[in-house]
Amino acid sequence: MGQLQDVGEADGWRCWLCDEPVEPDMSPNDPRGASLDTRTSKGRAKKKKQDKGNLPTERLAHKSCNTGKGSNDPVVPWPDHLIVVDPAPIIAAAERLERKGGREAMARCPTRQDAEAVAEWLVDRLSRLAPGLDVSTEIATTGGQHLVSLRTS
């Protein structure tokens, strides 16, 4: 239980996939119980562990989230309340920003208000998904829509 406790504390007892709280004392057999998940698929996780010692390779996840993901690359869903067009895969974008920095276009929104809500959510979500990654958002008006991008500091 020591490793699970350490990872749970590091992740603030929140599932890194669904971003919902994880109860540390819940049975590990319960679908909402705590489990350890590798950050990427097994082959890539081993490579990352060797190449990038600073990236966490184990994260806290609900048993149901971890089981649902299986051995596939994880997907962090965009929340239903955000209005986005062409949303980017969040984990892939975070990994690219961690690896090489720069800028990543994340989504287009129909209104400035929608884009601001997306920008706020992205910064908050990335603060838990990739705690060491310092990002800011940019909103650009293009063709009557608003493009939300992340940029490393």
Results as ranks from 00 to 15, higher is better:
Met1His: 10
Gln5Phe: 08
Asp6Val: 13
Val7Asp: 03
Ala10Arg: 13
Arg14Leu: 05
Cys15Tyr: 04
Cys18Asn: 10
Asp19Gln: 15
Asp19Glu: 15
Pro21Cys: 11
Pro21His: 09
Pro24Phe: 09
Pro31Asn: 08
Ser35Trp: 03
Leu36Arg: 09
Arg39Thr: 15
Arg39Leu: 15
Lys42Arg: 07
Arg44Asp: 14
Arg44Pro: 03
Lys46Ile: 12
Lys49Gln: 15
Gln50Leu: 13
Asp51Lys: 13
Gly53Met: 14
Gly53Trp: 12
Pro56Ile: 12
Thr57Met: 15
Glu58Pro: 02
Glu58Cys: 07
Arg59His: 10
His62Gly: 06
Ser64Leu: 08
Cys65Trp: 00
Ser71Asp: 10
Asp73Gly: 12
Pro74Tyr: 01
Pro77Tyr: 03
Trp78Tyr: 08
Asp80Gln: 13
Ile83Phe: 00
Val84Asp: 01
Val84Ser: 02
Val84His: 01
Val85Phe: 07
Val85Pro: 00
Asp86Lys: 12
Ile91Thr: 11
Ala92Ser: 14
Leu97Val: 05
Arg99Lys: 14
Arg99Phe: 09
Arg99Asn: 13
Lys100Arg: 15
Gly102Gln: 05
Ala105Phe: 02
Ala107Val: 02
Arg108Pro: 00
Cys109Val: 03
Pro110Glu: 13
Thr111Cys: 04
Arg112Ala: 04
Gln113Cys: 04
Asp114Glu: 09
Asp114Ala: 15
Ala115Ser: 06
Trp121Ser: 03
Leu122Arg: 03
Val123Ala: 04
Asp124Ala: 14
Ser127Thr: 11
Ser127Arg: 10
Arg128Gln: 11
Pro131Arg: 06
Pro131Ile: 05
Pro131Gln: 08
Val135Gln: 01
Ser136Pro: 00
Ser136Trp: 01
Ser136Tyr: 02
Thr137Trp: 00
Ala140Cys: 00
Thr141Trp: 00
Val148His: 00
Ser149Tyr: 00
Leu150Thr: 06
Thr152Gln: 02
